[in-house]
C-alpha cells in the first residue's frame, strides 16, 4: 500500500514539464518533494491528484490508479491559494468538506477541534478576505484535511507563514503522520524538508535528480561536511594555504568545508589543535539537502545548469 509514481511524463505543447519521473511514498510518512521554482513540482502533484493526466506513465495507490480512487482519498492544498473570498470561513469549510462527500455532523465536530488546534476559533464567522495571510493559509490547510483524507498533497504549505505559524504547521504535520496519514509536501526551502520528512525526491527541470530516505540522499554525494569555528578568527583564514580544501561557505558563525572522508575531517581538527587555535565548534556531518541538490545539478550537462533565477529560489547558505 504505497503511492507509486511510475515514469510519468507531461508536455504542454512543445514544452516538456515533467519527464520520466518515478518515486514511491510509503504510507504513514512525510515525504518532501523538492525542487526550484518551475521544476515541475506542481504539475507532478496535479498528476498524482488526477487533475491532469500524464502523457505516459501512471500513478497508483496500493496498485490502483489514482483516477479510480474515491475523491475523498486526497486532500489538496494548492500552491496558489484558492478560497471564496467573500464566504464565511465556517460555511466555506463545511461546503468543501461536504463536496468531498464527508458527513455534515462529523465535519462539524472535526471543525471545532481543528479551529481550536490552530487558534483561529475567533475567525470562524469572518469572511476569508477579512483574515490575515497566515490565517487564510490555515483555513486553506483545513480545507484539505476536514474530510479526513488518507493522503495529503500540500503544495508549498509554508510559504506565507511566519516562523511561529510555520512551526505550528510542522507540528500539525507530525500529528497527522502519527494518525496514519500520508503527507506529500513540496517546497523550495530544502531545509524544511530535511527537518520534517523521512524521504524526499528532488526534481530539476522536470527530471528526477535523486530520491530516497533523507539520510541516504544526504550521503549520496560521498562527501562529508566539516563545520568549524575558532574564537577570534571568524573567517578561519588559517585554512587557506597549501591545504587545497574545498571551502563551501564562510559564515560569520562557522566555516563549512567539503571533505571526501572522515579521515580528512579529523586531520583538519588535528591541525587546528597543533596550531593551538581556540576551537569553539567542530562538527562532521553530511551535506544538507540544499548542497546535495547543488552538487548533483553541477554534474549535469551545461544545458541543465540552474539559472540565476532558479538559484535565488534556493537559499544558498544556511
Amino acid at each position: 500500500m504505497s503511492l507509486d509514481i511510475h515514469q510519468i511524463s507531461k508536455s504542454f505543447g512543445e514544452f516538456t514539464v515533467v519527464q520520466d519521473v518515478s518515486f514511491s511514498v510509503e504510507p504513514g510518512t512525510i515525504f518532501g518533494f523538492l525542487g526550484t521554482n518551475g521544476a515541475g513540482k506542481t504539475t507532478t502533484m496535479r498528476m498524482i491528484l488526477d487533475i491532469i493526466r500524464p502523457d505516459t506513465g501512471e500513478v497508483t495507490w496500493g496498485g490502483t490508479p489514482t483516477r479510480y480512487l474515491p475523491r475523498d482519498t486526497f486532500g489538496y492544498l494548492p500552491e496558489e491559494r484558492g478560497l471564496y473570498l467573500r464566504m464565511v470561513v465556517e460555511d466555506q469549510l463545511m461546503f468543501l468538506a461536504q463536496l468531498y462527500g464527508a458527513d455534515r455532523k462529523t465535519v462539524k465536530e472535526e471543525l471545532d477541534v481543528w479551529l481550536a488546534r490552530l487558534h483561529i476559533e475567533e475567525n470562524r464567522r469572518k469572511t476569508v478576505d477579512q483574515l490575515s495571510k497566515g490565517n487564510q493559509q490555515k483555513v486553506q490547510f483545513l480545507a484539505s484535511v476536514l474530510h479526513d483524507p488518507q493522503i495529503l498533497i500540500l503544495d508549498e504549505p509554508f510559504s506565507g507563514l511566519d516562523p511561529v505559524n510555520a512551526e505550528q504547521m510542522k507540528q500539525v504535520f507530525r500529528e497527522m503522520r502519527d494518525r496514519g496519514k500520508t503527507i506529500i509536501f513540496s517546497t523550495h526551502q530544502l531545509d524544511d524538508a530535511q527537518e520534517l520528512s523521512s524521504d524526499v525526491a528532488i526534481i530539476h527541470r522536470g527530471r528526477l535528480v535523486i530520491t530516497g530516505p533523507v539520510g541516504a540522499v544526504r550521503q549520496s554525494t560521498g562527501e562529508h561536511y566539516v563545520r568549524i569555528a575558532v574564537a577570534g578568527d571568524p573567517e578561519n583564514l588559517w585554512l587557506d594555504g597549501e591545504w587545497d580544501l574545498e571551502i563551501v561557505r564562510r559564515r560569520s558563525d562557522y566555516t563549512e568545508i567539503a571533505v571526501p572522508n572522515e579521515e580528512v575531517a579529523r586531520s583538519i581538527l588535528r591541525e587546528a589543535v597543533r596550531r593551538n587555535l581556540p576551537v569553539t565548534r567542530f562538527e562532521i556531518d553530511y551535506p544538507s539537502l540544499n548542497d546535495v541538490f547543488l552538487t548533483h545539478v553541477r554534474k549535469m550537462p551545461a544545458a541543465m545548469q540552474p539559472t540565476r533565477e532558479e538559484l535565488t529560489a534556493v537559499p544558498v547558505g544556511d
Binding site: I51, R71, Y76, R81, G82, L83, L96, L99, H147
Partner: peptide, 15 residues
C-alpha cells in the same frame, strides 16, 4: 471568479 481565485483547483479535485 472561481478560476482566478484558484478555488477551482480544490473543486475539480473534490467533484
Amino acid at each position: 471568479e472561481e478560476k482566478s481565485s484558484r478555488i477551482m483547483e480544490i473543486m475539480v479535485n473534490a467533484a
